[in-house]
């Protein structure tokens, strides 16, 4: 059933990786992404791979969960790799029909694949080890300095929280409406695209109406609980930077030094731009 789909892919735990402050974790992942795109040679990637594996190991998240995050974009990675493999100019290795594979092409394709691979791996680890609500809290606080220039940080975070809260409810509702319309003989499976799109109307309209009704009732309930925006609001959960976060920052600092150092000493590998 639809409601059984797990959302956000949080994998609960109490490891060092889980305990990192969400703000620190978001910033560290941003740093990680910078590293991923800065690395210019394969030794750098070997180092990054070792570091990433260590993080996954510490987090105790089974490796297959982490790799599951890659599934939806595998096709995208492959296509990107192929494009780069065939469409990069340089010293040819072999030619087949209209395709020419160059030395630079092989190198560049490998780099693109590695970059995307690590990008997804790093962000997956973030969402796997941080509960959605902590993630929202972290984002809200990180964005709060931008309130001065008009960024509605609190409102954005509130919207995300409510969205997370209502996705399972609306999923369940969709399930019910599909069943109700099927019981009246609605057919969602046959016909061309146009007919199928039309068949969605009896599902979408009740769903929208119900979503608006829910929004209306929720707004009243929130007012009844004295909601008045982000001002003077306190929080149950305190975000506190601790030793763990300091450790995390130090680890990343070392990784950064190593990555840029390797770039400097070894220079770029073939094909890297």
């Amino acid at each position: 059933m639809l409601k059984d789909i797990t959302l956000g892919q949080y994998f609960p735990g109490n490891t060092v990786v889980h305990r990192l402050d969400p703000r620190a974790k978001i910033l560290l992942v941003l740093a990680y992404i910078v590293f991923v795109f800065s690395i210019k040679n394969f030794v750098g990637y070997a180092l990054l791979a070792a570091f990433t594996l260590a993080c996954i190991f510490i987090s105790q998240v089974p490796i297959r969960f982490v790799l599951k995050g890659l599934k939806p974009i595998v096709v995208f990675i492959v296509i990107t790799g192929l494009f780069n493999l065939f469409l990069t100019d340089g010293e040819p290795i072999f030619t087949w029909w209209i395709f020419t594979v160059t030395k630079e092409g092989v190198g560049f394709a490998a780099f693109m694949i590695l970059r995307l691979f690590f990008l997804i791996l790093g962000t997956s680890l973030l969402t796997l080890t941080t509960s959605p609500i902590a993630l929202t809290d972290g984002l809200e606080q990180l964005l709060s300095p931008f309130k001065k220039i008009g960024l509605p940080a609190h409102e954005l975070a509130m919207m995300m929280t409510i969205a997370l809260r209502f996705i399972p409810t609306l999923m369940e509702e969709t399930d019910k409406i599909i069943k109700a319309q099927s019981a009246r003989g609605a057919d969602f499976e046959s016909g061309n695209i146009l007919r199928r799109a039309k068949a969605m109307v009896p599902i979408l309209i009740p769903l929208f109406i119900s979503a608006f009704r829910r929004a209306d009732e929720l707004a009243t309930a929130m007012e009844c609980r004295c909601y008045r925006g982000g001002e003077n609001r306190t929080r149950l959960r305190e975000l506190k930077l601790g030793k763990v976060d300091l450790g995390g920052v130090l680890a990343f600092l070392l990784l950064g030094i190593a990555v840029f150092g390797l770039n400097f000493w070894l220079g770029p590998s073939v094909g890297v731009r």
Partner: peptide, 9 residues
Amino acid sequence: NPDNQMVAN
């Protein structure tokens, strides 16, 4: 409706 009164997950 209890579903429509809850804010957090």
